[in-house]
Design a protein around this nucleic acid. Structure first.
Lengths: 209, 209
DNA sequence: GTAAAAATCATGGAAAAAGGGGAGTAAGTA
DNA sequence: TACTTACTCCCCTTTTTCCATGATTTTTAC
């Protein structure tokens, strides 16, 4: 029985590339593609693929959230994350939200087929580089654990607000905000606000929640 | 006479996609691909394509600089920039460095062929969206034009260095660094260092030079 | 060769952040 | 219950940034 595949990616060339890679595979049934989250969800109302290859960068919604939505509505559909980024935070969040695999866009045909077959069989698959990123020991793991409040403060800092302004919007004292700021600097091992924001952006703590 | 095409892109799926799109075109001769700048230059020593499709994001060198290098050595080769980003600054720099066209990775087969044919005929081609971005009036352009020195200072700021430290590493006065910093804040319309770094990261000015 | 743009330097003052302390409360866990 | 964690608050000092204003010298581009 052929595995029914559906792609969500806004780059026509990538879709075409995957299509081409899968064209001669006998046990693959190509169901088509969507170029954004909305049309993906619309497609799923009437059609049920076995595996969805889902890009993380979509125009209307990010793939991480789309993954969650799809998995909630259709738990039987397996999802493979697809991205050019090999960042631990992306991979982790994608897997946390129910994805069964993660493949980089520079994967070979062999890797892609392996991923699809593994995932369709109910197993998990991480491309080599992705697995490497995840297997880093904790001390090499560069993403610090920050609390809910710290994340709020961090977001406001990155938006250019001063401690005073943050204190007013969060209805807390300036000194409290200052404490959070100091803790953030310590946790991120940052020398000052500038490097704090850079590191947070690199870890995607400010773009995708 | 067929147009000889060569691709430089580090994403296998994109290469495969373009290959697939061009496979049935009679007047296209596929010469192969390189996945980084170095192997592209190595290839060009012995082989001379008519048109190179060049990704902006490469592992070893950015496409903008590679474009310059290739054009210097082989002015007869036409280059089409290839990117997922529709940012004015990228497009401009690519064209300034001698590219004849710019195509987004979500371009259709028709657009791609049009680009190749136009460029091979010595004309220029910008994909619709790219052209739109370029025609935006200056006040709608969200990527400010910053100078070489400002970019250096910006990078150092984002790395957490103080004005004093930056001054020492660049062998200039602290007040000069301060001036650059002020100009950066003004150009980015940022309230302080934190928002400056965030905006710069969002515009990819700290990852790609 | 000239005009524009970029890079350089400066003063002085107000505002904010960084660094170093200490400390109480509430909530959940072992 | 004892312990940990998150969140809250405070003081003081030093450093750094931010702001306003002005000016000179190189580079670059036409």
């Amino acid at each position: 029985m052929a595995t029914k595949i559906f792609i969500v990616d806004d780059h026509y060339m990538v879709i075409e590339g995957i299509h081409s890679l899968l064209q001669n595979e006998k046990n693959i049934e190509w169901m088509g593609h969507a170029s954004n989250g909305a049309s993906c969800l619309a497609f799923l109302i009437h059609e049920k693929p076995d595996v969805i290859l889902m890009d993380i960068n979509l125009p209307d919604i990010n793939g991480i959230d789309l993954c969650k939505t799809v998995k909630l509505k259709y738990p039987d559909i397996y999802i493979i994350g697809l991205s050019t980024f090999n960042q631990q935070s992306f991979i982790e969040k994608m897997m946390e939200n129910g994805a069964s695999g993660y493949v980089l866009k520079n994967a070979t045909q062999h890797e892609l087929m392996e991923a699809i077959n593994m995932v369709a069989a109910g197993k998990q698959y991480l491309s080599f580089d992705a697995a490497l990123a995840l297997r880093k020991p904790e001390h090499e793991n560069d993403t610090p654990v920050i609390t809910r409040r710290e994340k709020e403060v961090l977001a406001h800092i990155a938006d250019g607000m001063t401690n005073n302004e943050i204190a007013q919007t969060l209805f807390i004292s300036v000194t409290t905000v200052d404490t959070h700021r100091k803790n953030l600097l310590a946790k991120f091992n940052a020398r000052n606000t500038a490097s704090l924001v850079k590191i947070a952006m690199q870890l995607n703590l400010l773009a995708i929640n």
